[in-house]
Design a protein around this nucleic acid. Sequence first.
DNA 1: GAATTTCTTCAGGTTTTTTTGACGTTTCCC
DNA 2: GGGAAACGTCAAAAAAACCTGAAGAAATTC
Lengths: 231, 231
Amino acid sequence: MEKILLVEDDKDIVENLSAVLKGEGFSVCTASGQKDALKAVEQEAFDLLLLDVSLRDGNGFAVCSAVKGSSDLPVIFLTASGDEYSVVTGLDLGAEDYISKPFRPRELVSRIRSVLRRCGKTQAVLEIEDLRVDTVRALVTKGGQECFLSALEYRLLLFFLNHKGMVLSRNQLLEEIWDAAGEFVNDNTLTVYIKRLREKIETDPQNPRIIRTVRGLGYTLADEVRKSGRM
Amino acid sequence: MEKILLVEDDKDIVENLSAVLKGEGFSVCTASGQKDALKAVEQEAFDLLLLDVSLRDGNGFAVCSAVKGSSDLPVIFLTASGDEYSVVTGLDLGAEDYISKPFRPRELVSRIRSVLRRCGKTQAVLEIEDLRVDTVRALVTKGGQECFLSALEYRLLLFFLNHKGMVLSRNQLLEEIWDAAGEFVNDNTLTVYIKRLREKIETDPQNPRIIRTVRGLGYTLADEVRKSGRM
DNA sequence: GAATTTCTTCAGGTTTTTTTGACGTTTCCC
DNA sequence: GGGAAACGTCAAAAAAACCTGAAGAAATTC
């Protein structure tokens, strides 16, 4: 799952885009100003930066320069319509692409995909134990046998794989996987999905090795599989 | 892999474009002046020439004339924005297309692909199972029998073939096949087309092997045909 | 300008996924 | 042990995703 940092200070756009991108299977973080953006880039490893040209505390160019100076993180600018100057500047600063507002979400997604592909940021295969996830084909296999996951099961697994070793709280998971449209879902939905996922990917679903419960805190996908259950 | 010669003397552009094109799977050589360009064309066989109109040692037209005089190498001009005169001259000289700066990398890539296809410089025959697509003649056959596809059906199939193995989301397909002109189409249009395409190219349309549905994620064209469906 | 083909949409059906609520089990603390 | 919270299980209801056939628009062809 590719991580995108969206830097934009129009709340409506943030909300809308966030939902769309999550729906398309991206992991989205947001920042609303230059400072936040730079801090986020420093702290976390993103695969792509979606950068509004006009921010309250200055323009996006500064952010782009800073980022490009210290990494090869791909950048897509969001520009106001017909703002030729920004386009030129953006591309000069090494941005990979730009898109003018108003844009169709679909088109943006397609641009994002294209840029990610071009920059080789699309991680193709994730593995843990005898479980293999081919993210290009959306193909999950366990010991060579294909596991047929539903869309949400797949998304959940992907999120775990991209946060190996971290304990993910129930809330965090509900937000990331379900909150795409801003709705709330029953807390138990997550529990059910964990169960289903375990049934499909664990060797012994009653005694889960891959997705472990950390009582009171959440769930975690074992970074490396330790020998025994209990500690 | 198609070989492109990029003739341009702005170092930044060269660097940027080079990276983009390489990222998209092209082989790129560069030349910064008329002389270099002509020498390169003589010495190596390219599939396409990307030619800046304004070069330090004269304009790109001379290069174009020379090249067109002795070969059928396709040419795309890079022109300064709004420079109508160059556009006309370029096309008069037999150039296949032009694009004005500043341009979106993605757009250039799509133009390049389009020109290559038009000029038959791209892979001519695509195959899967007993299905053969001759992209030069736009001829599709299944087990020797011709399939009569409509323009959109053909475009859809081609897109699948060029993205073998990838799961393509409905949005992505709508964007690529339908949304090019900015219009929206009903989501079901895609569904209907998938059905029609399957009826024409699948051995058993009820049980599609070539274009598979990945519920919740999209469709995919199997890059190798696996034995069975469900397990 | 009528006929034909292609494209798009609609309405309805089928299947699968997603969500939920009721109830069981484990864990922890008093 | 009793009780409360956290987590697990199950099955049924609700919703979404996908498929299908037909019919109205739009474009092409003759």
